[in-house]
Simulated scan of single mutants.
Amino acid sequence: MLAIVLIFNFSIALACLYATWQVWHLRRTLAQVTASLHTIERDTYALLHAAPAAIAQGQIGTRHLRRQYQKLQPQLQQAQQLLAILSLGQWFYRQLRSLQGPPTRLLRPTPPSRRRHIRRGV
């Protein structure tokens, strides 16, 4: 009977030793995770600490670009209207030319420097 009690106590002690060993490993793992999270939190803070100022600067730049765009919008419309008028004028000119028929060449005398000498009888 004493042997059974000793074996039972020994098995309980081994189970407690195993549980202690597991808790010790869990503690080490949790310490590493805590250190990693602390590092991540510190780096994130360092990275995002300047973000509000950068966002505000970006908003100012965006506002400035929108104002410039609004100022340029009438000029763009005028340029588009001018191109439309030029295109219409070009179309009208082509239509007028097609009604006149093929272009005729005026006969001009050839200047003496460009005349070819023709040999006769050779």
Rank of each mutant, 00 (worst) to 15 (best):
T29H: 10
L65H: 10
F10L: 15
Q32H: 15
Y93N: 04
T20Y: 13
Q80K: 13
A46H: 09
G58F: 03
H64W: 01
A51L: 11
F92E: 00
A53R: 07
L30Q: 12
C16H: 06
L17T: 11
A53S: 03
L76V: 06
R120W: 04
Q59Y: 08
L14E: 06
R105T: 15
L82N: 01
H49I: 01
G89C: 05
L30W: 02
A19Y: 09
D43M: 07
W24N: 03
L88W: 01
H49R: 08
S98G: 00
A31F: 08
I12F: 06
A46E: 04
R120G: 04
Q90P: 00
E41M: 02
L96T: 15
F10T: 04
L96K: 14
R42H: 05
F92V: 09
F10A: 10
I60D: 13
W91A: 10
Y69Q: 14
F92I: 08
H117N: 08
V122C: 13
C16E: 14
Q73K: 08
L76F: 02
L107V: 14
H25R: 12
A56Q: 07
A13Q: 03
H38Y: 12
L107I: 13
T29S: 07
G89H: 06
R28Q: 13
Q70R: 08
C16I: 05
P52Y: 01
I12D: 04
L26N: 15
L82V: 02
A46M: 00
S87Q: 12
Q90K: 03
T44E: 03
A31C: 00
S36K: 14
Q77D: 04
Q59T: 11
T20C: 13
L76N: 06
R105K: 14
P103S: 03
S11E: 09
F10W: 07
F10P: 00
R119W: 08
Q81G: 02
L86G: 04
F8G: 05
T20M: 13
T110F: 03
Q32W: 10
I118C: 04
V23N: 11
L106M: 11
P111M: 07
T29F: 02
N9W: 06
L37I: 13
H38F: 08
A79H: 03
A15L: 02
A3K: 12
L65A: 15
R66N: 06
L47V: 05
S98F: 03
Q32I: 14
R28N: 11
R67Q: 01
R116I: 12
G89L: 06
A3Q: 11
K71H: 07
R115W: 02
A19E: 15
R97N: 13
S98M: 04
T44V: 06
L17K: 08
G89N: 01
L107D: 14
T20H: 10
D43R: 12
R28C: 09
Q68M: 08
I7S: 13
R94S: 05
L17S: 05
P112R: 04
